[in-house]
Design a protein around this nucleic acid. Structure first.
Lengths: 190, 190
DNA sequence: ATCCTTTTTTACCATTTGTTAAATGCGCCC
DNA sequence: GGGCGCATTTAACAAATGGTAAAAAAGGAT
């Protein structure tokens, strides 16, 4: 399964087999079940996940103590708490599996070792994560000032695959509404 | 005024005077009035602004055609439409002055020339812009599932200086509500 | 100071969303 | 099959927010 990670990187840049072997030796593979906690809020995040299969969610509690979903991440996306990972500060967000998932685990120290040995890898991975950061923030911004039904419709159009795989309450918390509201919106749509 | 840009960069990295002179020669200075449009949506963004004084806002229309404020940017922050700037694609967002402002203008071509001559500058500026992207997205996420009054209180605590300088309707559009709602919230707070 | 324009406040009512609680469905284990 | 735990749906009511319109306030220009 780690091959799917290498293959993903090769979509952007040619990676010699020996480099690939080096990368393979420094990362690990992990299966998780729906609901499993991959990173607990309040700690310093020292791992980055590459998702081979499944969906992860980044979660955090809001002022009222409700657990909100900041992002969904799926196949061929990286998942980490970047602010914590980059700057060694405790993260207010956690990471959970929104459905069963298979991951490549990149430990920070080993990743940085790889960056030393393969300088192009740093540019590659930071480039990919920065670009996906831009896309995520664009999605969030596009929800600004839209009513809940519109946000849900846009979510369905943008991420139909995720909508089918995660729970209603996860989607509701991603859209910033209660699960009852989302259930009502679904009813009105049919 | 361009000095304030150089001085800002020097907070992060020592820049020799001759490099500073080179930078100075490749950037320009510009004053704008409140409401002035700095970049019009629908085009490819080929400029980056460094704000010496004042507040800019990134704006875009939502589904209902209302102009929403995605971000406020102020002194010592960069402002551009990064996805458009980096990838040469038309931007759905525009840039306007939320109050009178003074800017250092970085033309893309000249900036890239500088990156060639001063390679550390690329890492410096992309590092700064990536970090501020992380901060912006954290703020947006933290508003998720909060009611309008809470979002407004948090905005006041986080950016009290901006709250004093931009119009009520700009703030309302940043919080995703109507200006009438924000006015009502203000009344209930006193 | 006065007029004019723009911004902000207020009020009223419609709509949306939250809250609480109960009912229903659905899988899983015994 | 029966019962249990969990997710989803429904309902009734309360609270928050939007839409519209108008009044009040604030600035700017002459």
């Amino acid at each position: 399964m780690i091959d799917s990670f290498i293959n993903f990187l090769r979509l952007f840049k040619n990676i010699p087999d020996e480099d690939a072997e080096l990368i393979r030796s420094e990362v690990s593979f992990r299966k998780v079940n729906e609901g499993e906690v991959l990173f607990e809020e309040g700690h310093i995040c020292r791992e980055m996940f590459f998702i081979c299969k499944g969906v992860l969610r980044i979660v955090a509690q809001n002022d009222k103590g409700s657990k909100m979903t900041y992002f969904f991440l799926k196949e061929n996306q990286f998942c980490s708490i970047l602010n914590s990972f980059n700057n060694n500060i405790p993260a207010p967000e956690g990471i959970e599996a929104a459905c069963d998932a298979e991951l490549v685990v990149l430990k920070k120290q080993k990743l940085f070792d790889l960056y030393e040995k393969l300088p192009y890898l740093k540019e590659l991975i930071t480039g990919i994560t920065t670009q996906s950061l831009l896309e995520k923030i664009n999605v969030r911004n596009s929800y600004l000032g839209e009513d809940a039904a519109t946000r849900y419709r846009n979510f369905l159009m943008r991420q139909p695959d995720i909508a089918l795989r995660v729970s209603l309450s996860d989607i509701a918390s991603y859209l910033g509404i209660t699960q009852q509201s989302l259930s009502r919106i679904r009813k009105n749509m049919r």
